[in-house]
Design a protein around this nucleic acid. Structure first.
Lengths: 131, 131
DNA sequence: ATGGGTGCAAATCCTTTGCATCTGC
DNA sequence: GCAGATGCAAAGGATTTGCACCCAT
């Protein structure tokens, strides 16, 4: 996991680490470009994938585009396979204290309207292909 | 919120409700097309947006594409604005009982490696624009 | 010199938009 | 007859891929 990084990769990692706003790949690209005008988008995408794979960076998916739809509108949680991306409804309610939720919302500055717990791990079929 | 649905919208809703796999918009389109060969993708996208807005359907974003990157790799939670999509790090740890997490993971069939709590609501600036 | 990393451009894929037509009321 | 819904095609945006070149080892 501690593969050494190329200088481009270091620059990208630096940008992600110092960013305070969860940048998108293209935003990262724009910023890196200020230091390294000749870098290409493709390189940034490739590097980001590597960094995620190596655990230096995490990706978060927000609700813009590329989403899946769910007919179950009652509150429930999801389990997501980190290998194949499978999305599984969690059949039990993962309880979180209301007081903690409110405190967290207040600390974040948002008015809370709902919440979701996400479990990440390997789905059954990816476990089977163990490795 | 109980606007009445067009027959196309009903067909789309039906597909989403009976799907057991959290289909993407395109998957929904393909399925609806079996019943209504003349429907277009754009219509399906428009209908899905309406259904989400009306609360008949929810959207979930999985980790394929369109994501943002986070240099903070230690576990932490996120608050997401349902209006503008702003993604805010929650500055406090939202605790979830380990026992509950394990039970949920087991019930879902996954091997749990991490989890995240997501809070949804209005961010400060969207609150300001009240309405 | 060799192989991986890189830049560039083209290709893909997903989603949205413009617009003319159609539908239900 | 009208307003909104729809189909189609074209546009747009994000990400990936193919390929030749370059660099570090």
């Amino acid at each position: 996991m501690k593969d050494k990084l190329t200088s481009n990769a270091q620059a990208v990692l630096e940008v992600v680490r110092t960013a305070n706003n969860h940048p998108t790949a293209l935003e990262i690209y724009e910023t890196v470009r200020e230091q390294r005008p000749r870098i290409g988008v493709a390189t940034v995408y490739r590097i980001l994938h590597n960094l995620v794979e190596q655990g230096h960076v995490k990706e978060i998916n927000t609700s813009e585009e590329s989403c899946r739809y769910d007919g179950r509108i009652s509150r429930h949680d999801h389990a997501i396979c980190t290998v194949c991306g499978a999305l599984i409804d969690v059949p039990v309610d993962v309880k979180v204290s209301e007081a903690i939720l409110q405190a967290a919302a207040q600390a974040s500055g948002i008015t809370l309207s709902s919440h979701e717990v996400r479990l990440y791990g390997l789905c059954p079929s990816c476990q089977a292909k163990h490795k």
